[in-house]
Simulated assay, not measured.
Amino acid sequence: MGKHNAVVFLYIDEESNPIAELQTPVVFNLDTTKLTDGEHTLKIVSKFGNKEGLKTVRFIVRNGPIIHLEGLTDEETVNGVLPLMLNAYDTGKNQSFIIKGSENPRTIPVWIWIIALVFAAWGVFYLVSNFSLQ
């Protein structure tokens, strides 16, 4: 062990064997592709002489495809038949799209329909009131 540096041991979740033993300072690349999707804990134990330090960091891994659901929200009270729109797609971090969000179609929000109907109704009212035959 170096005179001025600490040694750190990295543990994932409740594993008894460290995934790495490193001399500080160091840059370490944590490969989350080897972990299951969901919650995990990174435990860092540092040793410097006869002193020991501990830091834990909780994080969530989501390497799998992203799932998008429209028509049902978490803990919503429902009845009858529900039309659901489902889509699953990769995060596409290595790709760039010209049209952002094109991989995930969505329904038109209700407020846009309301604005369109109000505008159309005003247009019909304008035409009828200004061009009516007398």
Rank of each mutant, 00 (worst) to 15 (best):
R106E: 11
P83A: 07
L117W: 07
N79W: 08
T91F: 13
P105A: 04
D90E: 11
N94M: 10
A88W: 09
Y89W: 04
I99G: 03
L86T: 05
I108P: 02
G92N: 09
K93A: 09
T91D: 12
G101H: 08
A121K: 01
K100I: 07
W111E: 09
Y89H: 13
L86V: 10
D90A: 08
S102L: 14
T107V: 09
Q95F: 06
W122Q: 06
V81C: 01
I108D: 05
T107G: 12
P109D: 14
F119G: 15
V124E: 03
I114T: 05
L82V: 07
P105G: 03
N104T: 12
L82T: 05
W122I: 14
T77P: 07
P105K: 08
P83S: 09
V124Y: 08
M85T: 08
W113P: 01
F97H: 13
A121L: 14
P105C: 04
P105H: 06
A116C: 08
T91E: 13
I98W: 10
P105W: 05
P83I: 03
I115M: 07
P105N: 05
L84W: 01
V110M: 09
E103F: 02
I98P: 02
N104W: 05
Q95I: 13
Y89E: 05
K100T: 07
Y89F: 12
G123Y: 11
G101P: 01
W113N: 10
K93P: 00
N94S: 14
T77N: 14
F119I: 14
I112N: 06
A88F: 08
D90G: 08
P83L: 07
V81T: 14
K100R: 13
S102N: 13
P83W: 00
L117S: 10
M85W: 12
L84G: 01
W113G: 07
V110I: 12
I108W: 03
P83R: 08
I108M: 13
P105T: 03
K93N: 11
F119M: 15
G80Y: 00
V124G: 01
N79A: 12
W111Y: 12
Y89R: 10
I108H: 02
R106V: 13
F119H: 01
G92V: 05
K93T: 05
N94W: 08
R106I: 11
A120Y: 04
F97Y: 13
P83N: 13
L82M: 10
L84S: 01
I112E: 14
W122F: 13
M85H: 14
K100P: 02
L82K: 12
A88I: 04
